[in-house]
């Protein structure tokens, strides 16, 4: 739990994923397109991956569609569904505004 929260706080946009999940890749592509380089944590490569997975569920991630689990500014946003919905509503760009890369703003 602590590790997940620490990661979410330390990086602006965090995607918890599995190395085989191509939907996570799609979400990270979307963020990059919007000018943010997300921090991608592939929990199947972490030694305590199982505990991290349980922690994500306890934090409110839907266990049916666990990955990708997206955090922005330390807060849980949700999975692909929520990210896409926020983007279509024009709200995602507002959430990631503080974390836009310098390259994009130039």
């Amino acid at each position: 739990m602590d590790k997940v929260q620490r990661m979410a706080r330390d990086h602006g946009v965090v995607i918890f994923s599995k190395s085989t999940c191509c939907l996570s890749y799609a979400v990270s592509v979307l963020f990059e397109d919007l000018g943010v380089i997300p921090y991608v944590c592939q929990i199947d490569h972490e030694s305590d991956g199982k505990e991290m997975e349980k922690a994500l569920i306890r934090m409110g991630v839907n266990s049916s569609f666990l990955f990708p689990a997206v955090f922005i500014g330390g807060s849980l946003v949700g999975s692909t569904n929520e990210v896409m919905s926020l983007h279509l509503q024009g709200l995602l760009i507002q959430l990631i505004q503080p974390y836009l890369s310098i390259l994009k703003s130039n």
Binding site: A26, V27, V29, L30, M84, H87, L88
Partner: peptide
């Protein structure tokens, strides 16, 4: 943008 992201995910 969302379509592009999903299309790239499908390609991957």
């Amino acid at each position: 943008q969302a379509e592009d992201a999903l299309s790239q995910g499908m390609e991957a």
